[in-house]
């Protein structure tokens, strides 16, 4: 049986999350501009932390912690996107 297309799509997303430790750690465009033009220090820190910097808490291996955070986030967003779409669809059928 051929796998449903969206299962393949989700698998690709999970694969990207798994390889996320290879991402460049250079500052991104905005961070770089902020550093070069001396307003980076204005950045506030969040009053709370769930998985700051895409690090799953309590795991020593940083790459593994990043993978776990990425996989969890990917699953959360799949569920959220699927969930919102399902709710909006069922409402328009009612």
């Amino acid at each position: 049986m051929k796998a449903k297309w969206w299962i393949i799509g989700l698998a690709v997303a999970l694969l990207l999350a798994i390889i996320s430790p290879i991402a460049s750690s250079f500052p991104d465009g905005l961070e770089k501009v902020a550093q070069d033009h001396e307003f980076a220090e204005k950045a506030g820190t969040s009053p709370f932390s769930v998985m700051s910097n895409y690090i799953f808490p309590g795991i020593e291996n940083e790459a593994l912690a990043t993978v776990l955070a990425g996989v969890l986030g990917t699953i959360i967003l799949f569920s959220l996107g699927f969930g919102i779409a399902s709710i909006l669809k069922s409402k328009n059928e009612a």
């Binding site: 969206w6 799509g9 990207l16 991402a23 460049s24 465009g29 967003l77 699927f82 969930g83 669809k89």
Partner: peptide, 26 residues
């Protein structure tokens, strides 16, 4: 419905993958 789920998941995961560009920036 599944497309919305897949796109949200894919975009989140792809956004984690910073690629290097000019001058020490990603």
């Amino acid at each position: 419905v599944p497309m919305m789920g897949v796109l949200a998941a894919f975009i989140f995961a792809a956004q984690m993958l910073n690629f290097p560009v000019a001058g020490g920036t990603s």
